[in-house]
């Protein structure tokens, strides 16, 4: 049925229209007329759905694969720090992670421009810059970026990726308290989870970095089964999505 919303909708619309007209004008049967109108409504509703949507299970698989690849990179470099999610450059959010364990808040508040290359320096610390999973997701939801942070997080995490069941968020100054319920995918990737947070938290941080145009760090993350209580902190001035000419080395 997934790729056939339009054909199913057209059939229901045609059938409903004929049934309601015949029932009302010829048979003068109100329940049958109502049945026809119901078919018309379901048909139009079906026609309005997007054709051939990518199954959410496939999107989740792709995000998980991306996280697995990043896990391998982090293992290879022996990364121990926590991620600082950077405002979008060329439309994509990046994350800088120090090789050594160091308070990320200290780096986020003092670091200058972080070069867009795999190995780079920020605030005197060597680290890696990666594209976190779903760094493209917020870009595809640009139209929704004018609303509240909660609306944007819901659009990215619930509507687009269908990675979680619900998202609530509250902004308190530079802090964003995010309550995620019903996470459908929390891959068991120790290094990734330590550095970038769990997959839904990482995507939430990326989305917030995109939305606010500021640096974002995960202040705390409490995973309880499929529910996550996440505290994100934003740093720096809102950037107007600056463009850099850096290349990935």
């Amino acid at each position: 049925m997934q790729g056939n919303y339009q054909s199913a909708g057209a059939i229901l619309l045609g059938f409903g229209a004929v049934l309601s007209i015949v029932s009302y004008s010829l048979l003068q049967n109100i329940p049958l007329t109502a049945l026809g109108l119901g078919s018309v409504i379901v048909g139009i509703a079906s026609l309005m759905l997007p054709p051939n949507p990518i199954p959410s299970s496939l999107v989740r698989e792709m995000l998980q694969n991306s996280a697995t690849n990043i896990e391998a990179v982090l293992e290879e470099f022996g990364v121990k720090g926590k991620a600082m999610y950077l405002p979008p450059r060329e439309g994509r959010v990046t994350a800088f992670i120090t090789l050594e364990e160091r308070p990320v808040v200290e780096i986020a508040s003092s670091a200058g421009e972080v070069p867009l290359r795999v190995l780079s320096m920020a605030s005197g610390s060597r680290g890696v810059t990666i594209f976190p999973p779903g760094s493209e997701l917020p870009k595809s939801q640009e139209a929704h970026s004018e609303g509240s942070n909660e609306d944007f997080l819901r659009t990215v995490l619930v509507d687009t990726s269908e990675l979680v069941r619900s998202v609530k968020s509250n902004t308190l100054g530079d802090t964003e308290v995010v309550e995620i319920k019903g996470a459908k995918s929390i891959p068991n990737l120790p290094r990734f989870n330590h550095c970038l947070g769990s997959l839904p938290s990482s995507i939430a941080a990326s989305a917030l970095a995109y939305k606010t145009g500021r640096r974002v760090v995960i202040d705390s993350e409490d995973v309880n089964g499929t529910d996550i209580l996440l505290i994100l902190r934003t740093f720096g001035q809102s950037a107007d999505r600056p463009k850099t000419e850096g290349m990935i080395d």
Binding site: M1, Q2, Y5, L35, G38, I41, V42, A45, S46, L49, P53, P55, S56, E162
Partner: peptide, 16 residues
């Protein structure tokens, strides 16, 4: 089940 499918099925069921 996909959310859109569930949406259409629920809508059809309620109308029926």
């Amino acid at each position: 089940m996909e959310r859109n499918n569930l949406y259409l099925l629920t809508l059809s069921g309620l109308m029926a």
